[in-house]
Amino acid sequence: MRTPIAFFLVVSALLFTIGTVGVLVRRNALVIFMSIELQLNAVNLTLIAFSRQLGEVNGQVLAFFSMVVAAAEVVVGLAIIVAIFRRRVSANVDDINLLRW
């Protein structure tokens, strides 16, 4: 028997919520980034679940594009974290409260 799509959607909702709480609770910029990745993955799971439900692959292509964008975002974000770390030796987001320094 096939798994109903709703199960995947519930797992995806839980993962997205955990990612949201992670972004709000954690102070380490890297862990906040990982939480954002978790949210993106949860959304990808939703896209693929609906794609399966509708019996077409457009949702999978959209998930593929979101993976590409996530990869680019991780590269730039980690470079920004490294650049900030070079200036002020900290990966704590509370220390970075000015737009210029």
Partner: peptide, 10 residues
């Protein structure tokens, strides 16, 4: 999960 949803490429 993606395999279960027949999205083998992804």
């Amino acid at each position: 999960f993606f395999v279960l949803l027949d999205a083998h490429f992804l």
